[in-house]
Write a protein that binds this DNA or RNA. Structure first.
Lengths: 366, 366
DNA sequence: ACACGGCATGAACACCTTTGCAAACCTTTT
DNA sequence: AAAAGGTTTGCAAAGGTGTTCATGCCGTGT
C-alpha cells in the first residue's frame, strides 16, 4: 500500500503500547551504517574502524540496544543454553549439586534452562522433548529416567545427554557419577570392623540406578565378609521415609545394632527415630551410616558417618565435557566414575581409616 | 571457489557430523504443501482440511520434526521463558521456594531460565542485563539486589520484574513477600510471654530488606513491651554463622535465656552450639526461635519454634501475576504481603496461640 | 447461469541476527 | 599517476517460524 511500507510500519510499532526494543537496524540507521557493521561491532575479531565503532556504540547506548540472543542462536545454529532436568529439591543432595553446577555453568558462560519433573520415577521423555524444541546445546539429567528411544533421538539431533549422579547403561548417553558400588563396599566393611553386624538396611526408590548400586554393593560385600542383613526396608530417599522405616525395624528387631541408610536424608530420619521417638542412643545402641555427605551431615545434631560425594569433581567433569568442541558427542568413554571417600564422624564406632578417608570425630574448632 | 558454493556448503553440512534438524520447509516438501500450511497444522484454531493435516503430521513424524521454539519466540515477539535470579542454595529456604516455584511454572507452561549470582550482596544488574538479552517474558528475583537504573531499564523494555521474598521500595518493581515485620512482632511477643527476656539476637546479612525487617520489627515490638535485647550479633544467614554467634553470646552473657535468629538456618546453628558445644539445654536453659519454617525445622533433632512462610501462597501469587495478560506490567499495587503464621514447637516455653497459629508440640503420629 | 460466502491454501513479508562475497576506500610503492 | 595491497563496509542470503493478504475452490441460493 504505502510506497515506503517498511519505514511506516516500524514507525507505527515504535509508538504503540508495547514499544519495540531497539534492533540492530535502528542502531544502524542512527549511526549511518548498515546492519552488518553493527553486528561486526559486537563480534570481536571482526575488522572495523575504531571511529565508526565508537559512533555505533554511542548510538547503541542511546537506544538501549543490546543484541537479541534468540536471533543470534537461531542464525548461528548454536546456543549456550543447557537444559538441566531434575525432579526433587527435597533431598538435600540436590541443592548442593545444583548450586555447584549452576555456579560453574555461569562462570563458563553457559545458561541452565531448568526443567523440573514431578517425581523421581517419572520418565523424563516429555522434558527431553521440550529441551530439544528449545534447541539447547546439551541436556544434563540428574534424577529422572529416560527411555532408550528418547535417548536415541537426542543423539540423532546431535544433542549430547549427560546423566549426572547416575549411570545409564546400554545407551550412548554419558554418565558422570560417584562409584556407588565401591562406596557401599566400604560401608559394609566399616560396620563389620566396628563390630555392629546386626544390620538393618533402608534403601531408596526402586528402579533407581543409585539405589540398586548402593543396595547391591552393600549386600555383596557383606556377604563376602560372611554376614547378611538382619532386615531391609524399601523407602523413598526421604527423611520421613527413613524415620518410619527405622521405627518399624526397631520394633520388629530389638537386637538391631546398626542401620545403613542409602542416603543421608534417610539416615537423619533414622537417627531422629532412634533418639527422639524411641529414646535410644547413637551409636552406643544403634550405629547409623549414610551416603552423600550433604552439608547437614556435619551439623552438631547429627555428625553422621557417611560416604562423601565429591560434588565439585562431578560438576567439574560435567563442565569439562560440555566445554569440549563436540560437547562430548564423540566421546569414546561413556561412564566417568569418581571415588567417594569415607568420612568418619560420631554415629559409628571408630575404625581404621583407608587412603583418602577423613576423620572428623573431633568437631572443627569454634 | 566452487561454482555451486552455497549448494555445496549446505550439502556438506547436511551430510557431515552436525546434520541439520528437519524444518517446517522439509515437512512441507514431503507432504506437498507450503510452509504456511505446516505452521497452521501446529497452531490450533487455524482452518485446515483434516485430510491434509493428517498427511502433514505423518510427514512430521517421519522426519522427526518439531517446531523450533527459538524461531517461534523470535517471530511472535513473545516467550514463555522466565528468568529466575538467585544466588544461594545453601540457605535451606531457597530450595523449598525453588521447588515450589519451578514446579508450578512447569504446570503453567512457563520455563525458568536459571541465573545464579555468586553472593547475596552482589548486584543482580549483570544477570538482569543477560536476561533482557534473552528476551525473557519476565524476571523473578529472589535474593539479590538490583540498582534503580536497571529496574527502570526492565520496565522500559516491558519486562516485568518481580521480587520474591523481599520488597523493593521506591521502584516500579513488584514484590511478593511475607510480612516479615509482623512476624518479627509476634516473635517478640512470644519470647516475652514465655518469660524469656534476656535475649540475644542473631541477624543476617546487612543491607538485605528481609534482615532489616526481621531485625527492626523485633526490636520495635520488644521496645513497645518495655524490653531491650541483651546483645545482638550480625551473621550471614548461615548455619555456621549462627553457631559462632551463639557461642560468642553465651560466653559473653552467661545469663542469656533466649536467642532469636533471623532465619531457621542460624537457629539450627545456635541450637547445636547450645547443646553440643556448651552442653546446655533447649529450651530449659536457653529458648531458641527462628524464622522461615523450612522442612528441617520440623525434624526430631530440632523441633524449632518459628514463623512459617507460606511458600505455596507466595508462589501462587507470583504465578498469578505472571499469567496476567500484561504479566503484571499494569499492576497498580506494588507489594503483596502475605502473613506468616506462628508455629509452636519445642524450643520455646509454650504460649497462648493466636488466630491461624499452629501447635506442633506433640510430634506427628508415627 | 451467476453472484456470493466460506473454507483451504500459497506467496510474501516480518522477526533479528550473522556471514560470504564483492565493492569501495585508503595508503603505499613503482 | 597508476597499480597493488590491505582494510572497511554494504548487499544479500540464510536461519525457522508466524501471519496477512490474495487467490482458488466448492457449494448454495436466486
Amino acid at each position: 500500500m504505502h510506497p515506503y511500507g517498511d519505514q511506516a510500519m516500524s514507525e507505527t510499532y515504535a509508538n504503540g503500547a508495547g514499544r519495540r526494543r531497539a534492533s540492530s537496524a535502528d542502531v544502524a540507521a542512527l549511526a549511518g551504517v548498515s546492519r552488518a557493521t553493527v553486528s561486526r561491532c559486537f563480534t570481536d575479531g571482526a575488522s572495523i574502524k575504531p571511529e565508526t565503532r565508537d559512533r555505533i556504540l554511542a548510538a547503541a547506548r542511546d537506544l538501549g540496544y543490546e543484541p537479541n540472543l534468540l536471533a543470534r542462536m537461531l542464525n548461528k545454529q548454536e546456543s549456550n543454553i543447557i537444559a538441566v532436568l531434575t525432579s526433587d529439591f527435597a533431598n538435600p543432595f540436590q541443592p548442593a549439586l545444583m548450586e555447584a553446577l549452576t555456579g560453574r555453568m555461569r562462570e563458563e558462560g553457559l545458561t541452565p534452562l531448568l526443567l523440573k519433573g514431578q517425581s523421581a520415577t517419572e520418565s523424563a521423555d516429555a522434558l527431553i522433548q521440550l529441551a530439544l524444541s528449545y534447541r539447547v546445546a546439551a541436556i544434563v539429567v540428574t534424577v529422572l529416567n529416560a527411555s532408550h528411544r528418547m535417548i536415541a533421538r537426542c543423539f540423532e539431533a546431535d544433542v549430547p545427554l549427560i546423566f549426572l549422579n547416575r549411570v545409564a547403561e546400554d545407551t550412548p548417553a554419558i554418565s558422570v557419577c560417584v562409584n556407588s558400588r565401591s562406596g557401599a563396599h566400604r560401608i559394609a566393611e566399616v560396620l563389620v570392623e566396628g563390630g555392629t553386624t546386626r544390620i538393618g538396611m533402608i534403601s531408596g526408590k526402586a528402579g533407581s540406578w543409585t539405589n540398586s548400586m548402593r543396595r547391591g554393593g552393600f549386600r555383596q560385600r557383606l556377604d563376602e565378609l560372611g554376614y547378611d542383613v538382619l532386615t531391609s526396608i524399601q523407602a523413598d530417599f526421604s527423611y520421613e521415609g527413613g524415620r518410619v522405616a527405622a521405627l518399624e525395624m526397631m520394633d520388629a528387631y530389638p537386637r538391631l545394632n546398626a542401620i545403613y541408610a542409602c542416603n543421608d536424608a534417610m539416615a537423619f530420619g533414622a537417627m531422629d527415630a532412634i533418639r527422639y521417638d524411641r529414646g535410644r542412643r547413637v551409636p552406643d545402641d544403634i550405629a547409623v551410616i549414610g551416603f552423600d555427605d550433604v552439608p547437614v551431615a556435619a551439623w552438631g545434631a547429627y555428625r553422621l558417618t557417611t560416604i562423601h560425594q565429591p560434588v565439585a569433581q562431578l560438576v567439574e567433569q560435567t563442565i569439562h565435557i560440555l566445554k569440549r568442541p563436540d560437547r562430548g558427542l564423540a566421546l569414546s568413554e561413556q561412564a566417568f566414575l569418581h571415588d567417594g571417600h569415607f568420612v568418619q564422624r560420631l554415629t559409628t564406632s571408630p575404625v581404621k581409616l583407608g587412603d583418602g578417608d577423613t576423620d572428623e570425630r573431633d568437631p572443627p574448632p569454634a
